[in-house]
Amino acid sequence: MPQPPLLIPKPEGLYCPDGDFYIDPMRPVPRALVTHGHADHARAGHGAVLATRQTLEIMAIRYGEGFAGQRQAAEGPLRLGNVDVSFHPAGHVLGSAQIAVTAGAQRVVVSGDYARVPTPTCAPFEPVPCDIFVTEATFALPVFHHPPPEAEIARLLASVAAYPDRAHLVGAYALGKAQRVIAALRQGGWQAPIHIHGALQRLCDYHIAQGIDLGDLRPATETRGKKADFAGAIVIAPPSAFASTWAQRFPDPVICFASGWMQVRARARQRGVELPLVISDHVDWPQLTATIAEVNPAEVWITHGREDALMRWCEMQGRAARPLHLVGYEEEAE
């Protein structure tokens, strides 16, 4: 007799009937397991949340201490109802985890968002053998070959050197990407202060408190400074800040944006970006396909993104695959 499925897609998200919980649900549910702190995965208002300690602390920073009725930090293997649950690093952002759900001989791994490029800002992805590997497909097209981050940082530093009178404003999302960019700048030899938008302050402070060295960070929101003070400076801000009057305080700014989408020129031009930086915290096509080959599951489930292309690749490889068409995960916020 075939085993009943361990996880089933529902409008709220992936549901585990044997454990009575959801993973990364888009709507409030009685019990949620959360892979990482990005807003489309970690929502406020659940009855109980199980996640890594760092993810819980990040949720508290973003939503306030009362973000859920109860919270539990995942430490070591756990038993929920009739299933075993364990959390494994995903390499995506600080605290990010893949969630393995095991019942009898069957194991499903929900990878959430994951990355394979090492960064000092979080633990590296750990491949977990499984029967079903649940993956996103954000960059699942063979056009996505993200260059090494050090090459992109070198382009940024070359532009800073070429335009010493201008400020470089680098758009980067507040959780993960901003710190990944800052850490890469430090590794690339930029030891000068980096200015950060106020919206990044608390999450940067949290990274530092977790022992991640981000160097000399200064607030960029002070209005007392003169425009010329920011000449030659690197300023990190959430991309939304560029549309506001905030950007006007900088001298003739060069708008940069750190995202895997920047590989497609039209995307960069849509956003009015002058210096696109292809720096991603997701897997590109070679990394995605290599990860599936490495994990080697009997079946691949695809949550969202370019599922048609990944389905096609799986078909060519003779791998069973299934699209889940989960609605609610935002791929813009990469």
Binding site: V264, R265, A266, R312
Partner: peptide, 18 residues
């Protein structure tokens, strides 16, 4: 490159040369 993967990529990128 596989024709289907190429078509999906072209559809997404929107520019043949790119």
């Amino acid at each position: 490159v596989d024709a289907q993967l190429f078509a999906a990529s072209y559809d997404f990128v929107g520019d043949l040369a790119e």
